[in-house]
Computed example of a mutant assay.
Amino acid sequence: MTPSARSPYEASTRPGALDALHPRLRGYFGAIPAGHVGRGTGVFDVVGTPRRWMWPLLAWFARDAVMAPVWERDVPFTVENRPAVDREGRIAVLARRTFHFRSGPWVMQDAITADADGLADHLGRSGRLVAALDVAVADGALRLVSTRVSFRVLGRMLRLPAAVAPRVVLTERYDPGIDRQRVSLTLSAPLVGTLYRYEGSFVHGVVPDDADAPGGTGGPGRRP
Rank of each mutant, 00 (worst) to 15 (best):
39 R>V: 09
36 H>I: 04
73 R>V: 01
28 Y>E: 09
185 L>W: 04
115 D>N: 13
43 V>Q: 00
88 E>P: 01
97 R>V: 02
150 S>A: 11
41 T>M: 02
121 D>I: 08
166 P>K: 13
10 E>T: 06
12 S>M: 08
34 A>K: 08
203 V>F: 01
216 G>D: 05
4 S>R: 08
211 A>D: 06
157 M>W: 11
90 R>Y: 10
78 T>K: 00
24 R>Y: 09
156 R>H: 13
219 G>E: 11
213 A>S: 08
23 P>D: 10
32 I>E: 02
182 R>S: 11
122 H>R: 15
60 W>C: 09
188 S>M: 14
134 D>Q: 09
216 G>Y: 03
141 A>Y: 12
124 G>Y: 04
103 S>M: 07
175 D>S: 13
110 D>T: 02
25 L>E: 05
207 V>M: 00
118 G>S: 04
68 A>I: 01
25 L>Y: 07
118 G>P: 05
5 A>W: 09
63 R>D: 04
171 T>H: 04
160 L>A: 12
15 P>E: 07
152 R>H: 12
14 R>L: 12
204 H>F: 15
108 M>I: 00
19 D>R: 11
109 Q>K: 08
84 A>F: 03
88 E>R: 14
103 S>T: 14
172 E>W: 14
51 R>A: 06
116 A>N: 09
164 V>G: 09
19 D>C: 09
175 D>T: 11
203 V>S: 05
27 G>P: 07
135 V>I: 11
95 A>G: 08
125 R>A: 06
6 R>V: 08
87 R>P: 02
104 G>R: 01
82 R>L: 06
65 A>F: 02
195 L>C: 14
119 L>V: 06
63 R>H: 10
86 D>I: 12
181 Q>M: 15
141 A>E: 15
32 I>Q: 00
91 I>L: 09
139 D>C: 13
103 S>Y: 06
33 P>T: 06
195 L>Y: 08
152 R>K: 12
157 M>G: 05
148 R>Y: 04
1 M>C: 10
136 A>S: 15
115 D>Y: 06
25 L>G: 08
138 A>S: 12
136 A>W: 11
68 A>K: 01
82 R>D: 04
29 F>L: 05
216 G>W: 03
81 N>V: 01
176 P>E: 11
154 L>T: 12
